[in-house]
């Protein structure tokens, strides 16, 4: 599925460049645009390294485990397959908390660590496990309570009431998450 989307994006882009006769730009695009990946990685890497370092302290001190335990009544319902004392729940909880506060760049390292921990429990290392899919559905729906970037932009353009979009945005996110989780649940039930 990722393969298909990937190929379709490239094909459509290249064909439209050819169709509009913009061959110079296309050639340039193909040769140089991968540099942007390095630029993004240079931006992201220090954040990931810093937060995985800090979270290792939280892991070793038992703080992460305590946090997971605190949220476990809620998390156990969503991730019944994950072992009770798994650190994955702590990272999932941290990822959701960071996302909720709109700290997107801090959320990514937690999410990646959560995947790492879930992979340790995954019986088939090549295939996505059930809790992984649930986690990603929750993650991609982007449960945000304080959308910091959007608020900053609205303030920048002198909105009379920058926060007025928060409530409808939360509701829209909730609808998105709930429909994703529901569909995921029914697909799993059908497969069993």
């Amino acid at each position: 599925m990722v393969s298909i989307i990937w190929a379709v994006l490239i094909f459509l882009g290249v064909f439209y460049y050819l169709f509009t006769g913009n061959i110079e730009a296309l050639n340039n695009e193909v040769l140089t645009n991968s540099k942007k990946a390095l630029e993004l990685m240079l931006e992201l890497m220090p954040v990931i390294v810093l937060w995985t370092g800090l979270m290792k302290i939280a892991e070793d001190s038992g703080l992460l485990f305590k946090f997971a335990k605190f949220l476990s009544p809620f998390l156990r319902k969503l991730f019944p397959e994950v072992k009770k004392d798994s650190l994955a729940l702590g990272y999932i909880a941290s990822n959701i908390a960071a996302n909720m506060l709109g700290l997107g760049s801090a959320a990514t390292p937690f999410g990646l660590k959560a995947m790492d921990e879930l992979q340790k429990e995954n019986p088939n290392k090549k295939e996505a496990s059930t809790p992984m899919i649930t986690f990603l559905v929750l993650n991609t729906a982007g449960v945000t309570i304080i959308p910091t970037t959007i608020l900053a932009m609205r303030v920048m353009y002198n909105s009379a009431n920058p926060e007025e979009i928060i409530l409808p945005a939360i509701l829209a996110t909730a609808i998105s998450s709930i429909s994703g989780l529901t569909l995921d649940y029914f697909i799993r039930r059908k497969k069993k």
């Binding site: 599925m1 990722v2 989307i5 995947m115 790492d116 879930l118 992979q119 290392k125 090549k126 295939e127 996505a128 992984m132 899919i133 990603l136 559905v137 991609t140 729906a141 998105s176 998450s177 429909s179 994703g180 569909l183 995921d184 697909i187």
Partner: peptide, 16 residues
């Protein structure tokens, strides 16, 4: 985590 079979993750994500 080097997983290639993503199963229903993407369609469900896009549906959401």
């Amino acid at each position: 985590v080097r997983i290639s079979k993503t199963k229903q993750a993407l369609p469900v994500g896009l549906f959401a």
